[in-house]
């Protein structure tokens, strides 16, 4: 077979992601736009699976699709009834759109160019010893070849363990800081979203806890 399934799958999912992202900007109803964004996030989760980032792929769905976008939909649904389109669309001039697209093309060219300049890495290259993670090292040392197909598969199946170990050892401080950040965000959301200070303090709590 000339073309591998992986490339076909990549093409399909990446294509859907890009189309949905463009649709997000072009559809009338904000709810439809939010649904397009959910679609993009799910496509990205599938691509993460293809990149063997299993843990991140599931976290992407739990946090982004499951919590963040539900929060978005909650807010949008409070302000728009079905069939309503976003009135602020009317105040956008054609020149704005044209200018933005030109800017975006330049941005795309710059980013892609810098990615290209940084070099293309193929998967067949073996990682050097310095690049190996702490967990890969002992496995690679005991076996003859640095990383055979078998051992790298075994390592990939342990993906949540590896990411978790890293989070709780080398990156413990950033991890703890994010928990502090989340707490601050929760308090901030509760304070901002409640109508008047004494009333309904309890009901506003649901907003921030996600």
């Amino acid at each position: 077979m000339a073309i591998s399934f992986e490339i076909v799958f990549f093409g399909v999912f990446a294509g859907i992601a890009v189309i949905l992202a463009i649709m997000m900007l072009s559809v009338k109803s904000p709810v439809h736009a939010a649904l397009c964004l959910v679609g993009v996030m799910i496509m990205l989760a599938i691509l993460y699976l293809m990149l063997h980032a299993y843990f991140l792929s599931v976290v992407q769905i739990v946090v982004y699709a499951g919590a963040v976008m539900v929060l978005f939909l909650f807010v949008i649904m409070f302000f728009y009834s079905p069939g309503a389109s976003d009135p602020s669309r009317m105040s956008v001039h054609f020149t704005h759109i044209a200018g933005a697209i030109i800017l975006a093309v330049i941005l795309l060219a710059v980013i892609t160019g810098s990615f290209l300049l940084s070099g293309n890495v193929s998967l067949t290259e073996k990682p050097s010893a310095a690049q190996m993670t702490d967990i890969e090292k002992p496995i690679a040392e005991t076996s003859e070849a640095p990383l055979t197909e078998e051992t790298s598969r075994m390592i990939e199946k342990q993906n949540p363990q590896l990411v978790g170990r890293m989070l709780f050892t080398k990156y413990l401080l950033p991890f703890e800081l994010t928990s502090l950040l989340l707490l601050a965000a929760m308090v901030g959301a509760v304070v901002l979203a409640r109508r008047s200070p004494p009333a309904e303090a309890g009901s506003a709590g649901g907003d921030g806890n996600d």
Binding site: V58, I61, V62, G66, N159
Partner: peptide, 15 residues
């Protein structure tokens, strides 16, 4: 049988 089965369950039920 990748090591994420249970989180996958949580993800899908949140969908």
């Amino acid at each position: 049988d990748v090591n994420v089965g249970l989180i996958y369950i949580l993800a899908i039920s949140s969908l």
